[in-house]
Amino acid sequence: MSDTRMARALTSCALVALLTSACGLQTDESDGGAGAQDGEEFEPQDPEILVHTGPGGGSDIFVRDVVSMMREENVISSNWSVRNEEAGEGAGAMSYLLERQGETDTISAMTTTWLTTPQTIEGASVTVNDLTAVAGLIIEPEVMAVSADSPYESLTDFIEDAESKPGELVQTGGSTTEVGALNGAALQAETGTDWQFLSFEEVGQRVTALLNGDADMMFGSAQDFASQVDAGKLEIIATISPDPSPVFPDAPTVEDEGYDVGLVPQVRGVMAPPDIPEEALTYYQDAFTQLLETDSWKEYSETNGLVTQLRVGEEWQSFLAEQNDRVAEALESADLG
């Protein structure tokens, strides 16, 4: 028994040694001889993509879906492992990237949370400016849902009701620093109204609160509501984003309703360690650019209510800086900054 185990151990050790030396040779080659090629030579050895939520969280499922689509469409040849770095709402993942300065095998998915966290959480010192911006992939337009029995037919109805009942209406969502909460705060500041915010960890609990009348409305992704809207239990009355949602294209935007509010978008993109070598950066940027052109992606983004907005490199970096200011403003108006 122990002999076979020993044998297995030895075999695997030998295998590991063989693999590392083989990979070592490979990098030597690309570093030395053929470095001048157009960068597509680069292949990460053991790529991992970070996610700042636990298994089953929004980002986690998105990234796992993205990786399996990339495999399916042969955009990548080896499997990327997904690593959940949950600490501190993105702060852990950002520090993890910072520690891997100049390395080529680790990238991370990011969301708007990466902009709010450094501004709100004690001890979260790394910001997106310290990292390399790879690409922005999508905007997830949030929509406003109310119970089917609710008297509100539009955002304006809700705002008017909120004016007559200060502090009484309830918006539900996640933490007070997530996108929905920030946009709610921005709307309150703009319209001089005041309503409550009811936090739940999980989307399911938020939808439940909406269904049983504990909350009056919720800002969330199309996916959060689709099945309940289908069943006639919830209604979508507005789009809390400049871009219409592909799932609910008829819901008027905040601007359509006549409010001029600097909304914080729910974005998803990719970041890399600082000083990542140029060829690796290009490799990842090409991979995601290719993905966004595939049919699988088109189908996926449509059913899930995602708006593809590819921003690569510099453009993505400056977009983030712009959003960062907007988040700071929203936090200010929510009294959280």
């Binding site: 501190g88 959480i121 004690e122 007070t176």
Partner: peptide, 8 residues
């Protein structure tokens, strides 16, 4: 992190 206030 306190979910309700965002404070740690």
């Amino acid at each position: 992190i306190d979910l309700f206030s965002g404070s740690t």
